[in-house]
Each structure stands twice: as C-alpha cells, then as structure tokens.
Design a protein around this nucleic acid. Structure first.
Length: 444
RNA sequence: GGUCCCGUAGCCAAGUGGCUAAGGCAAUGGACUGCAACUCCGUGAUCACCGGUUCGAAUCCGGUCGGGACCUCCA
C-alpha cells in the first residue's frame, strides 16, 4: 500500500508502527455551525481510508476531535443568547446527523477539547519546562525559533513567513511567528491554569489529545490542506519540542472543494450546507470520491446531478441483480467469481492501494455494473450474478455506499408472477398496472 | 510581494517518459421490448500555447497565457 506523505512530499510505502494496527487522527470541526459540503470531503474521504484499512485486516483506531471551545463558539453563543456548551452540543449532534447522511460511520472516538483540559495544561507545562514556551502576563507562547526544522510540512522557511508581512505584530511575542498556547481572556468560558484563567490556543488541543489517547506517535494524521499551515506545522513544532518526533509517520491532506472555481466563502455567499443539499446523499458521496482526494474538487449543480444519476444507475443494477437472484431462490447460493470479476476486483484494490485513487476504483465499479447488466440479460448466469453481488458488496462496504434492498415478500413475489403471466397472456393493461407496482418497489 | 498547485473531448475525470490517451455524464445511431423504461453494442481528443531535452513527451526542462490555494485560529 502506498500513501502520499505531505511530510516528505512523496508517495511512500505504508508500514504501520504496530503490526496489523493503524492509529489515525483526523482534525474535526469547530462546532459553531452546521457543516458545509466542503467540510464533508474529509469526513467522507477519511471514512473510506478507515474502511479500506479494515478491509485489509487492520484494526483501525480512528480518532477525530471536536473543538468545542473557541472564539467563534462564544460569538455564536452571545448572538443566540445562550451558552457555549448549548451551542457545541447542538452542532455536535448536527454533525453526527450529517455524517450519517453522507454515509460515514460515527462509531469512533471523538474527544472534546473541554474534556481534555488537564492534558492540554500539562502538555503546555512540559513545553515551558523544556524552554520551548514562555509566559508573558498570563499568556503562554511557543518559541518557534527553537525548532530547527520549522516549516518542514508546509515547505516554508521562517524568513519567508516573516517577510509575508501579513502576520499581525503582537508586542508580547518574542518573534512574530510565535503562536499562542494559552490565551488570557475573560470572555466566555475560561479554565484555571497555573498562568491564570483563560483558554488553550487552537494548535495544542490535537497534539495533547493524541499524546493522551495514543501515548505517542501515530501512523496517520489527516485533515484538509488548509490546515497544513499553520495548524499542522505548529502541531509538529510542539511535538518536536515535547517528544522529539513529528507526531505521525504519514500526514495526509485532502484538497479543497470549490464552488464556481473558488473556495467556499461565507462572506461571499458561496456556501452550501450539507443539510440543505436536497439531493441523494449517496450521489454526493460518489461525487466527492470521483476525483483524487488531493486535487481540488469543483462543485456545480450539474456535476452533482450527473453523479446523482450515476448513483441511480448503480442502485438499479445492484437491486436488479439482488431481486433476480431472490426470485430464483439463489441469494444464498455460492458465488462464482470468474476471471473477469477477479480482474475487476484486483484493479479496484490496486487503485486504492495506490494512494487511495478512488476515481480509478470507481471506474472498476462501473465495469462491474456492466458485467452485472450483461449477466442479467443472459440465461443461466445465476452463479455469475451471485458473484457480481458479492463483489458489489465488497466495493460498497469499502466505499461506504449503501443501496437499500430487502428480500422480497410473498406479496412481491406474487405480483411479479402475476406480471409475468399477464404479459404472457397479452393482458397488457393488467401487466402495466402490475409493472407500476413493481417499479414503485424498486424490483424492476 | 513571497511560496505552491493546476490547465486532458460540451461537462467531470484517470494517466506523470514508450502498445491504438482509462472511465463516467450529456449527445447521437443501432439492438432488445406489446409499448415504454432499463440495459447492451457503436460513435468523440492536434492532452492551453511556444520552444527545448530524448530514439520516443499529455508526462521532463524553460518561457507565455489562463485559473486557483496558502502566507489570516477558513474544513
């Protein structure tokens, strides 16, 4: 298996730290609003990563946090005349709902920053002890200059960053690049710390939680490419100071979702919330998997629509195969995987082995559709159809796509038999009525 | 201003040195069908442009044009 590692900017062979186990962490949302379709990209992509590792037989310890304390949450709480926890709880619930909608599993560890305050504080204390952090007037900053390879992830040099001139000058900082570990504040919820009441800076929560939960280095750290700098760069810097390693062996970043060739932006009204998508969410999932995860993904209504159509076709082929086997009492028969199916399956896996090339994997799903549709029109192909169903199930499990089918009821079978008989007897009015019923149930 | 990425058919998109440039959507011709739907078979590309390296370039190098991201606690 090969994975693109942002740390080295290369595609590398994947070797886990602990045999048969993958420890991975993905940066989760700040819960102050409903998520938009751009937020859904990592939610879907890393879900597929997890599923594929599990398919390969790994035990995956998947962790993704909730930032439940933040200025934006406080602002939102003030606007809604409520408190931060109410806001956070509301949008965490909404987040899970949206994850379920797009077909991503919610069964993983999701630590909340407020539950890990003591870990964060002791992490900062250790940075102070080691001389990588300094306290000024109740605030704590990280001393970027002490980390030799700062910029390793984002490919920047400290000098370039300073020349950038877009960094606001804070009198308290020794160096404009230094970032906040602990912020002194009296707005909203505050927490007691040795340096006074305040809140942790954004960059510390992830490393402190990883340290607490995994006890050290993990295999994969993931997130959106916009987090590479400064967030992930600062995580690495802190952990270099804390434990002399880069937290994760592999850093994976997904590209951003664009609308009208530009990044989504609330202020410019270019934003679509997942809950407002008003489309088949499996079609949306298919859309996000239709190009390489590291490339930008362009959204238009037309592109989404074409994937929604495509999902309809996939469902139709799958359910046809399922129902034809059911009608023939062959659902529980042994699948026959011929060479053609074997090859489709191999190419599908090879695509995912190659840095999770879901676009290529999908084209094998389309080959599988063609195969199944051909077998559906031929006589005496139940073993092959059963084989196709088997491969479909595997692909769907890995991609997290879910067509809904249920075994036929006695009534369904009766309608089907009656329909066949009516056609045979050229009772077309009756046949059409029955056909209508079968179409409604998705059996035809 | 600095750093980086991208430009493949009407649309989406894979491929990053070597057979006739995957696949999908849309369009269109045919087959199947009681009619239809579905499905199947077929039909489409001077790989943004110019120059270079090479036996050979969509792929590597240089330039031009166009688009985008990051340098801001934006997913």
């Amino acid at each position: 298996m090969r994975i693109h590692n942002t740390l080295t900017n290369r595609v590398e062979k994947f070797t886990p730290i602990h045999k048969d186990t993958v420890n991975m962490y993905v940066c989760g949302p700040t819960v102050y609003n409903y998520i938009h379709i751009g937020n859904a990209r990592p939610v879907i992509f890393f879900d597929v990563v997890r599923r594929y590792f599990e398919h390969k037989g790994y035990t995956v310890n998947f962790v993704s946090n909730f930032t439940d304390i933040d200025d934006k949450i406080i602002t939102k709480a003030l606007a809604d005349e409520t408190d931060e926890m109410t806001i956070a709880n509301k949008f965490i619930k909404a987040f899970y709902r949206d994850m379920e909608r797009v077909g991503s599993s919610t069964k993983y560890l999701a630590p909340r920053v407020t539950e890990y305050m003591s870990s964060i504080i002791s992490y900062i204390e250790k940075l102070l002890e080691k001389g990588y952090a300094y306290e000024v007037d109740g605030e704590v900053f990280f001393r970027v200059d002490k980390v030799a390879d700062y910029g390793i992830l984002s490919g920047r040099r400290k000098e370039e960053l300073i020349e950038g001139a877009r960094i606001s000058i804070d009198e308290k900082k020794e160096n404009p690049l230094d970032f906040t570990l602990w912020k002194k504040t009296d707005a909203g919820i505050t927490f007691p710390a040795p340096w006074g009441e305040g809140r942790p800076g954004w960059h510390t929560e992830c490393v402190a939680m990883i340290q607490d939960i995994f006890g050290g280095k993990i295999d994969i750290h993931g997130g959106g490419s916009e987090l590479m700098f400064p967030h992930h760069e600062n995580e690495i810097a802190q952990n270099r100071a804390f434990a002399e390693h880069h937290i994760a062996n592999y850093w994976m970043h997904n590209g951003q979702l664009m609308i009208d060739d530009k990044k989504m932006s609330k202020s410019e009204g270019r934003i679509i919330l997942v809950k407002d998508l008003d489309q088949d969410y499996m079609g949306f999932r298919l859309f996000t998997l239709s190009n390489h995860y590291r490339s930008p993904l362009e959204y238009t209504d037309e592109i989404l629509k074409s994937h929604v159509n495509q999902w309809e076709k996939i469902k139709r082929t799958y359910s046809q195969t399922f129902y034809q086997l059911d009608l023939a009492d062959r659902l529980d028969s042994k699948p026959f995987i011929d060479n053609h199916l074997k090859r489709i399956n191999q190419k599908f896996m090879a695509a995912l082995d190659s840095d999770f090339n879901t676009a290529n994997a999908l084209s094998e799903l389309y080959n599988l559709m063609k195969y199944a549709n051909q077998k559906l029109r031929q006589r005496d192909t139940y073993p092959e159809m059963r084989g196709a169903l088997e491969v479909f199930d595997t692909f769907f499990r890995i991609l997290g796509l879910r067509p809904e089918v249920q075994r036929l009821t006695q009534n369904d079978r009766a309608i089907y038999t009656a329909w066949t008989a009516a056609r045979k007897n050229k009772e077309f009015d009756k046949a059409d009525r029955l056909r209508e019923k079968l179409l409604e149930r998705g059996i035809l």
